[in-house]
Amino acid sequence: MLSFLVRRIFYAIIMLVVVSFVSFIIITLPPGDFMTQKIAELQARGDKSAELRIDEYRERYGLDQPLMTQYWLWASNFIKGDFGLSFEYDQPVATLLKQRFPLSVTLALATTAFTWALAIPIGVFSAVKQYSLGDQIATTISFLGIGIPPFLLALVVLYVAVVKLDQDVVGLFSREFVDASWSLAKVWDLLKHLWVPALIGAITGTAGTIRIMRGNLLDTLGQPFIEAARARGLKNRTVIWRHAVRMAINPLIVILGTETFPGILAGNILVEVVLSLPTMGPLYIEALLTQDMYMAGTVLVFLVMMLLIGSVLADIALAWVDPRIRLE
């Protein structure tokens, strides 16, 4: 098991290096960069002091050096925790991410909690009462949920809440709390805003999860060990939750690792943009649009890192719940 983990982590690191290189190339591919643009702007205005600062950056990030050197500088700084500078915000990338990352994690956790709390009971119900009226309704709604794009749902919610109900659902904080320091009142205010994007994410995420849960559970319920458990005199409920759901939950753990975890960084970007949330998603989109290369590169690498960490964690979790997966 330990050697399996070490091997798993080793591969993940190699993967990360490759991905970081590829993403760096992609970021620098488009002609021109933020720098050239800015320099042109400054020269037009004849701002000498700014030009000096730009020269300093140029040297620091090796912008006039060959590509490989640039990558090496960026990568070695990255490991030290210096992700470069966001030219758009004129602030270190790390500072910007530090503000938004916790909010993204909170949103992702809330969304996942909502999703599982809805999807698992509904999926189990749907499978146990297959073809009943309740199952048909759940199935119909979950197909609708898969069909409706989350950003559209966000727009509808926005319209109904703001225009019809006169509620403040935009962002994650009320105006008076945006720049306030953390306090109980601010947390409460956050919770009052958080449920909207979390629920929107959950509704669309739930739909797929219900289908997976239902399908797996139906498979499991047809297995001989379910009948054997019932023949032992167990209650139906015990058979379903202890024996069947326990077996059917594996794919959800994989999803948790490979979708939810990277989703912290770029979950429902469009929903986050529509609701103008101070999370990572909108930052990432903006960085891509403005060629804010260090910002975009950093988020991209983090995204892959999350995916890799998520899948390692999912493997560990799977081995924990299913003894057949534990390797000697």
Binding site: Q223, A228, M247, P323, R324
Partner: peptide, 24 residues
């Protein structure tokens, strides 16, 4: 449920899959 497993025990055709795989 008292009779099942209590007064009447049952063993099955498929020993390979009659035990829940995740339990000892």
């Amino acid at each position: 449920r008292e009779i099942r497993g209590g007064h009447i025990g049952m063993i099955f055709q498929e020993p390979m899959s009659s035990l829940t795989p995740v339990f000892s």
